[in-house]
Write a protein that binds this DNA or RNA. Structure first.
Length: 332
DNA sequence: TGCCAGGCCCTCTTTAGGGCCTT
């Protein structure tokens, strides 16, 4: 059986009043634990793009890059072969992606999510939940750069994940953290951020529902991942799509801690994994591994907090919120 | 010389500071 066909789509869930996320995603997460690292993904680790502006033709090389990945808590060493996949969807990403399309994408009229929530409607046909993680050259969103990005669409199915190294065009000083070296990313085959953004937008677009929203989930995303992504977009004169919402699992973990009256407990992703006895399948601090781990943590957190998809949307914030809070703080 | 990230939360608190979390 193909892994993708085992994934339980959110769209297939019958409408009901109580939309427990844990119930919705039960099958999805069950499958996730089996399929992490499988071939239901789009990897973009070896690419070359020409002429992003003006819809010029671009070429993609098929140059496999091999990286060694150490398994956490294990002496086993795995060799992962990264190369451009040949699925039709990837062809869609790599052909005819230009800024005009992105602008067209931004002109789409989205549904009124608040109204849908107020009417207690099932949001599963409107919201795409994506866990994601980035690896960077450091903590500074201004001075550091993204060197790896990975996404997992929780509705599963074919091409539900996206991962790639990113060429930062600078040295990587913190390889001891993620084991991504300067040599691995500073290569012509590895896409630069300005090349990657249109493809990333196209991928997300392929996963979202008609007139729907995309809920990005990251751990400590409010302070780190989301502003980092926003800065990269700003640097390359691209606006964050208006239908992107963000949820921070660190805030959910704090909420759970508070509800339980627990204090002074670590709520790092690693500690949450230990708490929930989640097996990390691969090397932590690699984007895809952490995005997969986060998907499992999210399931447990939303289950413990008894959150529906609507509840999660209510706890989300927008790029505007992040910018606004920063401006407000600066003016204080 | 001192700083070199920044948002959120807690507390010995809000006219502030320290710790956690992300790489």
């Amino acid at each position: 059986m193909r892994a993708g066909s085992m994934i339980f789509s959110l769209v297939q869930v019958p409408r009901c009043r109580i939309h427990r996320l844990a119930n919705y995603w039960g099958e999805t997460f069950h499958s996730l634990s089996k399929t992490c690292g499988n071939n239901s993904s789009v990897r973009l680790l070896s690419s070359r793009i020409y002429g992003l502006q003006g819809g010029q033709k671009r070429k993609w090389t098929r140059r496999p890059i091999t990286t060694n990945t150490e398994g956490t808590g294990s002496t086993k060493s795995r060799s992962t072969k990264h190369e451009i996949l040949s699925e039709p969807i990837l062809k869609t990403f790599t052909e005819n992606v230009n800024k005009e399309q992105v602008v067209e994408f931004d002109n789409v009229q989205y549904c009124n999510l608040q109204q849908e929530i107020a009417q207690n409607k099932d949001l599963s046909s409107l919201v795409t939940v994506i866990t994601f993680d980035i690896e960077t050259t450091g903590f500074s969103r201004e001075n550091d750069r993204i060197i790896e990005i990975a996404l997992r669409d929780l509705q599963g199915g074919e091409n539900s994940t996206f991962q790639t190294l990113v060429n930062p065009e600078r040295c990587v000083p913190n390889s001891h953290i993620h084991h991504i070296t300067t040599h691995m990313v500073n290569r012509p085959e590895v896409p630069r951020m300005e090349e990657l953004i249109p493809i990333l937008l196209q991928f997300v677009r392929s996963r979202q529902k008609p007139r729907g929203y995309v809920l990005w989930v990251a751990h400590n995303g409010r302070a780190f991942d989301f502003p980092f992504i926003m800065n990269e977009f700003r640097r390359h004169s691209t606006e964050i799509p208006p239908n992107w919402l963000f949820v921070d699992t660190l805030l959910l973990a704090r909420e759970l801690m508070k509800a339980r009256g627990t204090k002074s407990t670590s709520i790092s992703l690693g500690t949450l994994c230990e708490h929930y006895r989640i097996h990390v399948d691969g090397q932590a601090h690699r984007a895809m591994v952490d995005a997969n781990t986060l998907a499992l943590v999210l399931r447990r957190l939303t289950g413990d907090l008894k959150l529906t998809l609507s509840d999660l949307v209510k706890r989300s914030f927008t790029a505007f919120d992040i910018i606004n809070s920063k401006k407000k703080k600066n003016s204080d």
